[in-house]
Simulated assay, not measured.
Amino acid sequence: MGRITDAVKHLIIINVLFFVATQVYGDQMYQWFSLWFPKNENFAIWQVVSHMFMHGGFMHILFNMYALWAFGSPLERMWGRNKFFFFYFSAGLGAALIHTGVNYYYFNQGLDALVNTGIPKEQIMEIITSGKYSPNWYNIAPKDTIDSFLSAINTPAVGASGAIYGVLVAFGMSYPNSELFLMFIPVPVKAKYFIPVLIGLDLFSGVTGYSIFGNGIAHFAHVGGALFGFLMMWYWKKNQFNSNRWDR
Protein backbone atom coordinates (compact mmCIF):
# COMPACT_ATOMS: atom_id res chain seq x y z
CA MET A 1 0.00 0.00 0.00
CA GLY A 2 2.44 2.69 1.18
CA ARG A 3 1.87 6.43 1.07
CA ILE A 4 -1.09 7.98 -0.65
CA THR A 5 -0.41 9.16 -4.21
CA ASP A 6 -1.37 12.51 -5.74
CA ALA A 7 -4.30 11.50 -7.96
CA VAL A 8 -5.77 9.25 -5.29
CA LYS A 9 -5.38 12.01 -2.69
CA HIS A 10 -7.19 14.56 -4.85
CA LEU A 11 -10.00 12.11 -5.66
CA ILE A 12 -10.50 11.38 -1.96
CA ILE A 13 -10.56 15.10 -1.12
CA ILE A 14 -13.22 15.79 -3.79
CA ASN A 15 -15.31 12.84 -2.60
CA VAL A 16 -15.13 14.06 0.99
CA LEU A 17 -16.10 17.61 -0.03
CA PHE A 18 -19.11 16.28 -1.92
CA PHE A 19 -20.06 14.15 1.07
CA VAL A 20 -19.86 17.11 3.45
CA ALA A 21 -21.94 19.22 1.05
CA THR A 22 -24.51 16.42 0.90
CA GLN A 23 -24.82 16.48 4.68
CA VAL A 24 -25.46 20.23 4.51
CA TYR A 25 -27.77 20.47 1.48
CA GLY A 26 -29.30 17.00 1.57
CA ASP A 27 -31.78 16.07 -1.14
CA GLN A 28 -30.81 19.00 -3.33
CA MET A 29 -27.35 17.50 -3.82
CA TYR A 30 -28.82 14.11 -4.71
CA GLN A 31 -31.20 15.75 -7.17
CA TRP A 32 -28.42 17.64 -8.93
CA PHE A 33 -25.48 15.26 -8.87
CA SER A 34 -26.77 11.67 -8.66
CA LEU A 35 -27.07 9.71 -11.91
CA TRP A 36 -30.75 9.69 -12.86
CA PHE A 37 -32.38 7.72 -15.67
CA PRO A 38 -32.31 9.85 -18.86
CA LYS A 39 -36.13 9.99 -19.01
CA ASN A 40 -36.34 11.29 -15.45
CA GLU A 41 -36.80 15.06 -15.21
CA ASN A 42 -33.83 15.27 -12.79
CA PHE A 43 -31.37 13.91 -15.36
CA ALA A 44 -28.50 16.14 -16.51
CA ILE A 45 -25.52 15.18 -18.65
CA TRP A 46 -22.92 16.14 -16.01
CA GLN A 47 -24.31 13.43 -13.73
CA VAL A 48 -22.41 10.74 -15.65
CA VAL A 49 -19.32 12.18 -13.90
CA SER A 50 -20.70 13.86 -10.77
CA HIS A 51 -22.38 10.68 -9.47
CA MET A 52 -18.89 9.21 -8.92
CA PHE A 53 -18.39 11.72 -6.08
CA MET A 54 -21.75 11.18 -4.38
CA HIS A 55 -22.31 8.62 -1.62
CA GLY A 56 -25.31 7.35 0.28
CA GLY A 57 -23.82 7.31 3.77
CA PHE A 58 -20.67 7.29 5.90
CA MET A 59 -19.92 3.57 5.53
CA HIS A 60 -20.43 3.82 1.77
CA ILE A 61 -17.81 6.53 1.33
CA LEU A 62 -15.50 4.97 3.95
CA PHE A 63 -15.23 1.61 2.19
CA ASN A 64 -14.93 3.22 -1.26
CA MET A 65 -12.19 5.62 -0.22
CA TYR A 66 -10.30 2.87 1.61
CA ALA A 67 -10.41 0.72 -1.54
CA LEU A 68 -9.35 3.68 -3.68
CA TRP A 69 -6.32 4.27 -1.46
CA ALA A 70 -5.39 0.61 -1.00
CA PHE A 71 -5.69 -0.49 -4.63
CA GLY A 72 -5.39 2.79 -6.51
CA SER A 73 -2.11 4.03 -5.03
CA PRO A 74 -0.01 1.07 -6.29
CA LEU A 75 -1.48 1.54 -9.77
CA GLU A 76 -0.76 5.27 -9.79
CA ARG A 77 2.83 4.63 -8.71
CA MET A 78 3.17 2.19 -11.62
CA TRP A 79 1.34 4.28 -14.27
CA GLY A 80 1.71 7.88 -13.23
CA ARG A 81 -0.98 10.42 -12.36
CA ASN A 82 -2.48 11.15 -15.77
CA LYS A 83 -2.81 7.55 -16.87
CA PHE A 84 -4.44 6.68 -13.55
CA PHE A 85 -6.93 9.55 -13.89
CA PHE A 86 -7.78 8.41 -17.41
CA PHE A 87 -8.31 4.82 -16.28
CA TYR A 88 -10.35 5.76 -13.21
CA PHE A 89 -12.80 8.03 -15.02
CA SER A 90 -13.07 5.68 -18.00
CA ALA A 91 -14.06 2.83 -15.69
CA GLY A 92 -16.56 5.12 -13.96
CA LEU A 93 -18.10 6.18 -17.28
CA GLY A 94 -18.26 2.53 -18.34
CA ALA A 95 -20.08 1.70 -15.12
CA ALA A 96 -22.60 4.49 -15.80
CA LEU A 97 -23.10 3.23 -19.36
CA ILE A 98 -23.79 -0.37 -18.35
CA HIS A 99 -25.99 0.67 -15.42
CA THR A 100 -28.07 2.95 -17.65
CA GLY A 101 -28.26 0.34 -20.40
CA VAL A 102 -29.63 -2.25 -17.97
CA ASN A 103 -32.13 0.31 -16.69
CA TYR A 104 -33.26 0.92 -20.27
CA TYR A 105 -33.91 -2.80 -20.59
CA TYR A 106 -36.03 -2.89 -17.42
CA PHE A 107 -37.79 0.33 -18.38
CA ASN A 108 -38.75 -0.90 -21.85
CA GLN A 109 -39.73 -4.32 -20.49
CA GLY A 110 -42.15 -2.72 -18.03
CA LEU A 111 -43.45 -0.20 -20.54
CA ASP A 112 -44.14 -2.94 -23.11
CA ALA A 113 -45.91 -5.07 -20.49
CA LEU A 114 -48.27 -2.19 -19.65
CA VAL A 115 -48.84 -1.17 -23.26
CA ASN A 116 -49.74 -4.77 -24.09
CA THR A 117 -52.59 -4.57 -21.58
CA GLY A 118 -54.14 -1.76 -23.59
CA ILE A 119 -52.88 1.31 -21.70
CA PRO A 120 -51.69 4.03 -24.12
CA LYS A 121 -47.94 4.66 -23.94
CA GLU A 122 -48.50 8.42 -23.68
CA GLN A 123 -50.68 7.93 -20.60
CA ILE A 124 -48.06 5.77 -18.90
CA MET A 125 -45.29 8.27 -19.64
CA GLU A 126 -47.40 11.16 -18.37
CA ILE A 127 -47.94 9.36 -15.07
CA ILE A 128 -44.33 8.30 -14.44
CA THR A 129 -42.76 11.60 -15.53
CA SER A 130 -44.89 13.30 -12.87
CA GLY A 131 -43.26 11.01 -10.28
CA LYS A 132 -46.35 8.83 -9.80
CA TYR A 133 -47.60 5.37 -10.73
CA SER A 134 -50.89 3.50 -10.82
CA PRO A 135 -51.42 0.77 -8.19
CA ASN A 136 -53.55 -1.00 -10.79
CA TRP A 137 -50.38 -1.77 -12.78
CA TYR A 138 -49.58 -4.50 -10.24
CA ASN A 139 -52.89 -6.17 -11.02
CA ILE A 140 -52.33 -6.37 -14.77
CA ALA A 141 -48.57 -7.03 -15.08
CA PRO A 142 -46.00 -9.13 -13.15
CA LYS A 143 -44.93 -7.52 -9.88
CA ASP A 144 -41.18 -7.96 -10.53
CA THR A 145 -41.55 -6.32 -13.95
CA ILE A 146 -43.34 -3.29 -12.51
CA ASP A 147 -40.90 -3.01 -9.59
CA SER A 148 -37.93 -3.01 -11.99
CA PHE A 149 -39.69 -0.57 -14.30
CA LEU A 150 -40.36 1.96 -11.53
CA SER A 151 -36.93 1.49 -9.96
CA ALA A 152 -35.21 2.10 -13.29
CA ILE A 153 -36.76 5.52 -13.78
CA ASN A 154 -37.02 6.70 -10.16
CA THR A 155 -33.87 5.42 -8.40
CA PRO A 156 -30.65 7.41 -8.91
CA ALA A 157 -27.17 5.89 -8.74
CA VAL A 158 -24.43 7.31 -6.53
CA GLY A 159 -20.93 6.30 -5.58
CA ALA A 160 -17.39 5.73 -6.79
CA SER A 161 -17.85 1.96 -6.72
CA GLY A 162 -18.03 1.52 -10.50
CA ALA A 163 -14.70 3.26 -11.02
CA ILE A 164 -13.20 1.41 -8.06
CA TYR A 165 -14.26 -1.96 -9.48
CA GLY A 166 -12.23 -1.04 -12.55
CA VAL A 167 -9.31 -0.27 -10.24
CA LEU A 168 -9.76 -3.63 -8.51
CA VAL A 169 -9.57 -5.46 -11.83
CA ALA A 170 -6.46 -3.53 -12.84
CA PHE A 171 -4.85 -4.31 -9.48
CA GLY A 172 -5.70 -8.00 -9.80
CA MET A 173 -4.24 -8.16 -13.32
CA SER A 174 -1.11 -6.23 -12.30
CA TYR A 175 -0.51 -7.88 -8.92
CA PRO A 176 -2.33 -11.23 -9.17
CA ASN A 177 -0.44 -12.91 -6.33
CA SER A 178 -0.85 -10.08 -3.82
CA GLU A 179 -2.43 -11.46 -0.67
CA LEU A 180 -5.44 -9.54 0.62
CA PHE A 181 -6.41 -9.64 4.27
CA LEU A 182 -10.17 -9.27 4.59
CA MET A 183 -12.19 -8.67 7.74
CA PHE A 184 -14.65 -11.48 7.10
CA ILE A 185 -12.08 -14.09 5.94
CA PRO A 186 -9.49 -15.21 8.55
CA VAL A 187 -6.82 -16.16 5.98
CA PRO A 188 -5.17 -14.10 3.20
CA VAL A 189 -6.64 -14.51 -0.28
CA LYS A 190 -4.70 -13.81 -3.48
CA ALA A 191 -6.06 -10.99 -5.61
CA LYS A 192 -6.42 -13.24 -8.66
CA TYR A 193 -8.96 -15.35 -6.74
CA PHE A 194 -10.75 -12.77 -4.60
CA ILE A 195 -11.50 -10.13 -7.24
CA PRO A 196 -13.15 -12.46 -9.83
CA VAL A 197 -15.28 -14.00 -7.06
CA LEU A 198 -16.38 -10.52 -5.90
CA ILE A 199 -17.36 -9.53 -9.44
CA GLY A 200 -19.13 -12.85 -9.93
CA LEU A 201 -21.21 -12.22 -6.80
CA ASP A 202 -22.24 -8.82 -8.16
CA LEU A 203 -23.20 -10.36 -11.48
CA PHE A 204 -25.20 -13.06 -9.69
CA SER A 205 -26.98 -10.45 -7.57
CA GLY A 206 -27.73 -8.24 -10.56
CA VAL A 207 -29.25 -11.10 -12.55
CA THR A 208 -31.18 -12.80 -9.74
CA GLY A 209 -32.05 -9.82 -7.55
CA TYR A 210 -30.70 -11.66 -4.50
CA SER A 211 -27.85 -9.80 -2.79
CA ILE A 212 -25.74 -10.97 0.12
CA PHE A 213 -24.44 -7.40 0.49
CA GLY A 214 -27.83 -5.80 1.15
CA ASN A 215 -30.36 -3.79 -0.84
CA GLY A 216 -29.92 -0.61 -2.82
CA ILE A 217 -26.70 -1.67 -4.58
CA ALA A 218 -26.17 -0.91 -8.27
CA HIS A 219 -24.67 -4.31 -9.08
CA PHE A 220 -24.53 -3.76 -12.82
CA ALA A 221 -22.59 -0.53 -12.28
CA HIS A 222 -19.98 -2.61 -10.44
CA VAL A 223 -19.94 -5.16 -13.24
CA GLY A 224 -19.72 -2.37 -15.84
CA GLY A 225 -16.74 -0.73 -14.12
CA ALA A 226 -15.02 -4.12 -13.85
CA LEU A 227 -15.71 -4.91 -17.52
CA PHE A 228 -14.34 -1.60 -18.79
CA GLY A 229 -11.35 -1.94 -16.46
CA PHE A 230 -10.63 -5.37 -17.88
CA LEU A 231 -10.99 -4.20 -21.50
CA MET A 232 -8.60 -1.29 -20.93
CA MET A 233 -6.04 -3.50 -19.23
CA TRP A 234 -6.31 -6.11 -21.97
CA TYR A 235 -5.85 -3.46 -24.65
CA TRP A 236 -2.92 -1.82 -22.91
CA LYS A 237 -1.12 -5.10 -22.31
CA LYS A 238 -1.75 -6.26 -25.87
CA ASN A 239 -0.43 -3.00 -27.31
CA GLN A 240 2.28 -2.44 -24.69
CA PHE A 241 0.57 0.80 -23.79
CA ASN A 242 2.91 1.84 -21.01
CA SER A 243 3.23 4.89 -18.79
CA ASN A 244 6.01 6.36 -20.95
CA ARG A 245 3.31 7.54 -23.37
CA TRP A 246 1.78 9.76 -20.72
CA ASP A 247 2.85 13.08 -19.27
CA ARG A 248 3.19 12.24 -15.61
Score class of each variant (00 low, 15 high):
Q240Y: 07
Y210P: 01
Q47R: 12
K83M: 15
I153A: 00
G200H: 14
H219S: 13
A170H: 07
G2F: 11
M78D: 13
S134L: 11
G214Q: 11
I199T: 06
S178M: 04
V48Y: 14
Y106K: 09
F85K: 02
M125Q: 06
K39M: 12
K132Y: 09
E126H: 15
L75V: 06
F85H: 05
I185F: 06
H219I: 06
P120C: 05
P74W: 02
I128Q: 02
F19H: 10
P188G: 04
A218V: 14
N239R: 15
M52E: 03
N239K: 15
V20P: 07
F53G: 01
A95I: 05
M52S: 12
E41W: 09
A21C: 09
G224R: 04
N242K: 15
A218C: 11
F63G: 08
F86T: 04
F37Y: 14
P186S: 02
V20Q: 12
T208G: 10
M78G: 04
A191T: 12
H99E: 13
L62M: 12
F33R: 09
I45T: 06
R77Q: 07
G229Q: 04
G229L: 05
T117F: 03
F19M: 08
L180S: 05
F194V: 03
G94S: 04
I153Q: 03
N82P: 03
